[in-house]
Simulated scan of single mutants.
Amino acid sequence: MSDSPILTVDLAQWRAGGAAAEEVCAAVDISLQQAGFLLVTGHGIDPTLPARLRATAREFFALPGHVKSKYAVGVGGRGWIGPGMEANGYAEGTETPPDLKETYNSGAQTRVGIPEVDDYWFAPDVWPVEAPALSELFTAWTTAMKTLSDDLLALMAASLGLAGDANPFRGLAGNATWTSNINHYPPLTAVGDPADGQYRIGPHTDFGTVTVLDREPGAGGLQVYSDDGGWADAPYAPDALTINIGDLLEYWSGGRWPAGRHRVLPPQPDAPEEDLVSLIFFYELDHDAVVTPLAPPIGRESGRASVISGEFIKTRLDAITVG
C-alpha cells in the first residue's frame, strides 16, 4: 500500500506540537488533495469499544425481519433502515439498484427548540429492547467520535495555516448536526447475486464535513477513487480509523480538497459467506452555519457563494432516498 494516495497520520504527533506536528499537517493537505481520504492513528479511541458495539449490532441484525421492522425508518430517520431503502449512486445522478445493506442509525440529540428543525435534525433516537446494550455502546461511541471530529476539523484548518483564531470553523460546530450508521453488509449467500451496477454501497461522496469510519476489511470492501489511480482498494490498518471529507468541506475548501469518492463492492463469489459490519460517523456543522468558501491562494476557485449547512446537506440526503 506504499503507493496509495491515502496517507497515514498520527494525531498524537500533531497534538504534541513542534516539527512533527508540521509534518502531520503537510501530510494531511497532500492526502486530502490526492483522494479526500486519510488514515489516522494516535486517536485515543479504546479499541474494545467498537468491538463491543459491533458485536451487539450483529445481535440486532440477526433478528427476524418482522422484529427489526418495529424500528423501521426512512433515510435520515433514527432506527433501522432496511434493505432496498438507499441507493447512494443516485447522489452522482446515476440510477442504480438499491444498495445491498441494512443500517441502524442514531443522531445528534441537542435540540434547539424550533420544531421543524428539531424534528429533522435532532429526532429522538430509537433503541431496540431486543438488543439492550446497543443504546449505551452506540452513545459512547458517537460521543467519542464527535470529540474526534472536532479535533479533525481543527487539524485540517491547521494544515492550511488557519489554526487558533484563524480557524474558520470556530463557532460553527458548537451544536453540530451529525448522523451515525452501523452498516451491515450481508453475505452473498443471504442476498443472492448482485444485479448489474449493484453495490453494497454505490459510488458516491459523503455530504458533510468529516466522516470517521471503523471498518472490517474484506473482498467486498471499501474502494476509493483518485484521479491518478482510478478505483483501488482502500488501505487498511487495524489501529487506524479511515477518514474522508464530504461535499460541504470540499465546498468550504474552495475545491482544494475533493470530497472522497468511494464505494463498497458487492459481496464477491470467492467469499460468499463474508459478512461485514462498519461503524460510520458523519459530521456536519450547526444546522444554520454559514459556510463561506476559502478564496485563492488557499482555495482553488473564487466566486463561490456562501451556503447554509443544513440546506446544503438535506438536498443531498433527499437525492439518495429510493422512491
Results as ranks from 00 to 15, higher is better:
residue 189 T to Q: 15
residue 230 G to R: 13
residue 129 V to F: 04
residue 220 G to A: 08
residue 121 W to Y: 15
residue 36 G to M: 02
residue 156 M to S: 02
residue 202 G to M: 00
residue 176 A to W: 06
residue 69 S to G: 08
residue 230 G to T: 10
residue 38 L to Q: 03
residue 221 G to R: 03
residue 200 R to G: 03
residue 291 V to E: 04
residue 199 Y to D: 03
residue 274 E to S: 07
residue 280 I to L: 13
residue 19 A to S: 14
residue 123 A to F: 06
residue 20 A to E: 06
residue 3 D to V: 13
residue 21 A to K: 11
residue 47 P to D: 10
residue 200 R to T: 05
residue 135 S to G: 11
residue 163 A to Y: 14
residue 1 M to H: 14
residue 149 S to H: 10
residue 79 G to E: 11
residue 1 M to L: 06
residue 260 G to F: 05
residue 213 L to K: 03
residue 73 V to S: 03
residue 89 G to V: 00
residue 221 G to I: 02
residue 227 D to L: 07
residue 193 D to S: 12
residue 134 L to R: 01
residue 75 V to F: 10
residue 232 A to M: 15
residue 234 A to W: 03
residue 293 P to I: 10
residue 118 D to M: 14
residue 251 Y to K: 12
residue 272 P to Y: 04
residue 255 G to A: 13
residue 152 L to V: 05
residue 145 M to P: 08
residue 292 T to S: 13
residue 92 E to L: 01
residue 245 I to V: 08
residue 284 E to K: 10
residue 290 V to Y: 09
residue 191 V to F: 00
residue 77 G to V: 11
residue 107 G to F: 10
residue 248 L to A: 03
residue 235 P to F: 05
residue 246 G to I: 04
residue 209 T to L: 00
residue 145 M to H: 07
residue 206 D to N: 03
residue 159 S to F: 14
residue 263 R to Y: 03
residue 230 G to P: 11
residue 79 G to N: 08
residue 63 L to W: 03
residue 290 V to H: 10
residue 52 R to C: 05
residue 117 V to R: 13
residue 35 A to F: 01
residue 286 D to I: 01
residue 285 L to T: 12
residue 182 I to R: 02
residue 123 A to D: 10
residue 285 L to N: 14
residue 60 F to I: 01
residue 227 D to P: 02
residue 250 E to C: 07
residue 313 I to N: 09
residue 41 T to L: 08
residue 90 Y to N: 02
residue 292 T to L: 07
residue 177 T to S: 12
residue 143 T to L: 04
residue 15 R to A: 12
residue 201 I to T: 05
residue 322 V to H: 04
residue 2 S to C: 03
residue 234 A to P: 14
residue 99 D to H: 00
residue 174 G to A: 10
residue 306 S to L: 10
residue 281 F to I: 02
residue 246 G to S: 09
residue 172 L to E: 05
residue 79 G to Q: 09
residue 166 A to M: 12
residue 224 V to G: 06
residue 151 D to V: 04
residue 169 F to I: 00
residue 153 L to W: 07
residue 227 D to N: 05
residue 1 M to T: 12
residue 19 A to K: 14
residue 323 G to D: 12
residue 16 A to C: 07
residue 209 T to N: 04
residue 300 R to M: 11
residue 249 L to N: 05
residue 186 P to V: 02
residue 257 W to E: 03
residue 266 P to M: 00
residue 252 W to P: 00
residue 159 S to Y: 12
residue 284 E to N: 14
residue 270 D to N: 15
residue 77 G to S: 04
residue 94 T to G: 00
residue 19 A to T: 14
residue 66 H to Q: 15
residue 305 A to P: 13
residue 171 G to W: 09
